[in-house]
Amino acid sequence: MHEYSIVQSLMNRVEAEAAERRATAVKALTLRIGELSGVEPVLLTTAFETFVEKTICEGATLSIIRVPVSWACPRCERSIVQGAFLQCPECSVPATLRSGDEIILERIEMEVPDV
């Protein structure tokens, strides 16, 4: 269960960004998680809720955008369904992963005092 260490990395980044802007609170986080990333959103959310207590993220909402897996032939662009042989039946070249392995922090919404 590596979701806890993913959250640890996430929190380190968010805290650094918040400190840089002298933010007083983090209200929302948006992540983009691919279905072939090896990260399970439900477990990630549980880990997040456990971690955020007494941090600048306490009470923040976590939104996770799931990115579906997309394989395609790099030559003819034909898409290849997951579960099929990952080779283009027409061009006989290995498929490439177009999306689905993302573990991305998209956006942080934070309260920044007016200066």
């Binding site: 993913i6 990395s9 996430l10 380190n12 980044r13 960004e17 802007r21 933010a23 007083t24 609170a25 209200k27 992540l31 573990i103 991305i104 922090l105 998209e106 956006r107 942080i108 919404e109 934070m110 309260e111 920044v112 005092p113 007016d114």
Partner: peptide, 26 residues
């Protein structure tokens, strides 16, 4: 600060990051 009424509430600012969560490990 809240622009309309000057109530003193801090602004909620969206910061676009668009970076890998495991960038530090990478």
């Amino acid at each position: 600060m809240c622009d309309t009424c000057g109530c003193g509430d801090p602004d909620v600012v969206p910061i676009e990051i668009q970076d890998k969560i495991l960038a530090g490990n990478d």
